[in-house]
């Protein structure tokens, strides 16, 4: 099955943007990644099993593109994360603290954490999206949670 790209943009653009931003930490790059991801969907002839398959495919493509951006040597004149954060309207100081702490995690932990806590994916699904083993996903989640607990202390519960 396939869905019209316009419909998918309406449904998932913010999820893809958040996933991309959580990796590349830059507004312009994240927006470009959203655009490139939907173009790739629009021009591909892939058939999908269901809506969830499409969503996972879009997120995987966006994550791969964001990683590519991160590994590009020629990056300069980017808006610092701290400056961008000042423009965001966090509900509470704790939310801002959590956001900032997550963004300081190493990329591989940050990605797994984001897919688990924001996208509600389970270990098996994350393994499929990131093309890594389930044990590897568990290790990344465990390590990421440990770092979050160490930094956030009582603001982050034990939930393993």
């Amino acid at each position: 099955m396939r869905e019209p790209v316009q419909k998918l943009i309406g449904q998932y653009q913010n999820n893809i943007y958040a996933a991309a931003f959580s990796i590349c930490k830059n507004v312009q790059d994240a927006e470009d990644i959203v655009q490139e991801t939907f173009i790739q969907y629009h021009t591909s002839k892939n058939q999908f099993e269901n809506q969830q398959h499409i969503r996972a495919w879009l997120i995987r493509v966006a994550i791969n593109k964001a990683k590519n951006v991160n590994h590009t040597f020629w990056r300069k004149n980017k808006v610092p994360l701290e400056d961008y954060m000042e423009t965001l309207a966090f509900e509470t100081p704790e939310s801002k603290n959590l956001f900032e702490t997550v963004m300081k995690l190493p990329e591989k932990y940050r990605t797994a954490i984001h897919l688990f806590y924001y996208e509600d994916y389970g270990v098996k699904e994350i393994a499929g999206i990131l093309r890594i083993s389930e044990s590897n996903v568990k290790a990344r989640l465990s390590r990421g949670r440990k770092l979050l607990r160490e930094s956030l202390q009582e603001e982050w519960d034990h939930d393993e």
Binding site: N14, A18, E31, F38, T92, D157
Partner: peptide
């Protein structure tokens, strides 16, 4: 709040206002 709820609240600030519909086509 659960950790998931806290996380979603924190990251819900990430919204893009760019109009991708026309650009993608």
């Amino acid at each position: 709040m659960t950790n998931k709820e806290k996380y979603k609240e924190a990251f819900s600030v990430l919204q893009t206002s760019r109009d991708f519909s026309l650009e993608v086509e």
